[in-house]
Design a protein around this nucleic acid. Sequence first.
DNA 1: AAGTGGTCTAGACCACTAG
DNA 2: TAGTGGTCTAGACCACTTG
Lengths: 238, 238
Amino acid sequence: MTGATARRAPPRGDWRAVHDEALRRIGAREWPPGALIPAETELAEEFGCARATVGRALRELAASGLVERRRRAGTRVAEQPSRHARLTVPLIREEIETTGATYSYALIGAAERKAPPAVAARLEGAERLLHVAATHFADARPFVFEERWINLDVVPEAARSGLFAEISANEWLVRNAPFAGGEMALSAAPAEAAEAAALGLAKGAPLFIVERLTRSPDAVITLARLAYAPGRRMRLEL
Amino acid sequence: MTGATARRAPPRGDWRAVHDEALRRIGAREWPPGALIPAETELAEEFGCARATVGRALRELAASGLVERRRRAGTRVAEQPSRHARLTVPLIREEIETTGATYSYALIGAAERKAPPAVAARLEGAERLLHVAATHFADARPFVFEERWINLDVVPEAARSGLFAEISANEWLVRNAPFAGGEMALSAAPAEAAEAAALGLAKGAPLFIVERLTRSPDAVITLARLAYAPGRRMRLEL
DNA sequence: AAGTGGTCTAGACCACTAG
DNA sequence: TAGTGGTCTAGACCACTTG
């Protein structure tokens, strides 16, 4: 391979050439699903490059789920390729503004209160909770109704009066809460009374529901339920 | 750092230590959003490891969207961290069987036919199309209604009579069509007449809709619309 | 022009696990 | 226990882009 001394047209790196050729062999069934592919050392010899370069290529393939690697056992083509999709979670503001509409936001209420048991269970023993309800608009048309619980044990600053009158809880949290992982669940549900009222829909209208739980390293930061008006589509790439 | 000579308890690699410490500094706002972080060489000196090790750590952070890297410009903490979620797209069979229910499948119809214009546009000039309609059941209860178009120019074998009587189109395609990327869109919609009938629901019931388009390297392979009965949740990790 | 990240190499040791 | 992937190093050259 070219190594560090000479380089050809696409300045993308040699590991990518190995990666792409492996991809081709998998697609062409030269390496069929479930098959064991040659070891790194063999491929390095075939491609005339260092083992680390082959390793980089195969690591990327493993990350995209196309091959499975285990020490001693070797690298196998996955039986079920490409079963992962990457979803970009936009801020609601950006989601609306990229459609060309004007974003606005209206707080319905924010108050410290006790969570119902189902919520409390998911918040893992948080004691002080802030409940926030709000609607986001696209060109003055209701776009999504948001109901959220915030763990004040983790972000006590969120209790400041009037904080969420102008900035949405999500935007404030993104900027002020420590980085975190979390979980998300998507579903469809009929509009409940509060949701129907906030979105200007008939009760029972089909809503796209996003429930999102966000964690700091130590505890749950917030649990949010977003109810989107009909017509909303969430796009992903496979 | 430990290097290759001595190693401590968690046998996970030194790049992960750098990665985790960087994560901590970002979370603790020692490296605030938008800030330029030290160059690889500086971090390598601080951590007492090789520059490649720091590079590996920062590359992983960049892949998860937490930092942005550009040559000469350096590495910056992203303004909007963690905006990606990874979705595992299961086979319907697995999705049902992991709940403990028994999977079954009933073909409603499979026939070569002309696509309506909206479908034809997305299939990018495919000429021969197979239309398939089917229902998937969990313990004899309708779980999802599937309507699918298959590009016979790409997978002519799919036209074989009786093929989809026993195996679902998705499972057959996963095993027999060349590897591909694709797109997916999620939404909520009221049940149309055919969907309501197949799922045993009232017309207008809120359905969770998954539209999936799958590509081979050259052309669109298939376009599918999956309508899930109420109660279905799709889970993701952030 | 200079400094950053991106990549490659050759060699090494280690962790894991199938046979 | 032998062979695989996982990681690390030290050094090097290159591509890119900012100042």
